[in-house]
């Protein structure tokens, strides 16, 4: 798989149903969802959060197959981290594998983490991953993120694709010379030179960019022209989302005090 192919989701899927919802609202709501979900501890509430995230995924018209594959890649990571939890948490023994006792508490904790991580990642992909990266930058700016950080992000977004193509070209040049990556000194040195050359070309490109920007009257400020407006439908979406979050909290509280 080429690097550019793996970058593909950076581009939007314009048919996203809440593509019309104000990007600022989506940023705030996804942070809200993450904070609430991380705060949940009851499995019922966490399953509800995951269901809500799945609903968002469907609403966003995310390609289900590739999204779930992506989640599975993340879950391999999580799995490595939490698979040991049942065996390392003291508590009521549940079953034994090769003489190691798994505790109910440990398994509970592991499931909690898996549900939380998946719910937040899925909601984030649905709410934020479907917007143009530049729009995200504008939204963050409108939400009073430091201007320079937003500018830095815009530059990064703009040049990821350009540099990805540059990397692909250099790799192709290496292949044309018969380079085949193996676990040896020659391969590692070649990769190191590749990275070094990428950085050199990048910095030289940035000098040309700055020159071109100065020609066009760059004074250190990049005016961000996009203006956002919260419309009636946006407020409705926010209200609905807030109710859903309140329900999550409600489920949690109800289960804690039962």
């Amino acid at each position: 798989m080429s690097i550019l192919a793996s970058l593909a989701p950076v581009r939007t899927m314009p048919q996203a149903r809440f593509g019309a919802v104000d990007p600022r609202a989506r940023v705030v709501l996804s942070v809200g969802f993450a904070l609430v979900t991380v705060g949940l501890s009851e499995l019922v509430a966490l399953f509800a959060a995951l269901a809500m995230a799945t609903g968002l995924m469907i609403m966003a018209h995310l390609p289900v197959g590739s999204t779930l594959r992506r989640m599975a890649a993340m879950d391999l990571f999580i799995f490595a981290l939490i698979a040991m939890l049942p065996f390392t948490t003291p508590g009521t023994p549940m079953f034994t594998i090769f003489g190691f006792e798994a505790s109910r508490e440990g398994l509970y904790h592991a499931v909690q983490i898996a549900l939380t991580a998946n719910a937040v990642a899925l909601a984030m992909l649905a709410l934020l991953g479907t917007m143009e990266a530049v729009t995200l930058g504008h939204a963050l700016h409108a939400l009073r993120c430091p201007e320079r950080l937003v500018q830095l992000m815009m530059f990064t977004v703009r040049y990821i694709e350009v540099l990805g193509e540059e990397y692909a070209r250099m790799r192709q040049a290496m292949r044309a010379r018969g380079f085949r990556p193996r676990s040896n000194w020659h391969s590692y040195r070649s990769y190191g030179y590749l990275v070094g050359m990428m950085l050199v070309r990048a910095i030289e490109r940035s000098e040309r960019i700055l020159g071109a920007m100065k020609c066009r009257g760059f004074t250190g400020r990049i005016p961000l022209l996009e203006r956002f407006e919260m419309r009636r439908r946006d407020w409705q979406f926010v209200a609905g989302f807030a109710v859903a979050l309140a329900v999550l909290v409600g489920i949690e509280v109800a289960n804690v005090f039962v």
Binding site: R148, T156, I203, S206
Partner: peptide, 10 residues
């Protein structure tokens, strides 16, 4: 900032 952005991208 252009240099930092381009390096961040690389």
């Amino acid at each position: 900032i252009p240099a930092a952005g381009v390096l961040s991208a690389s």
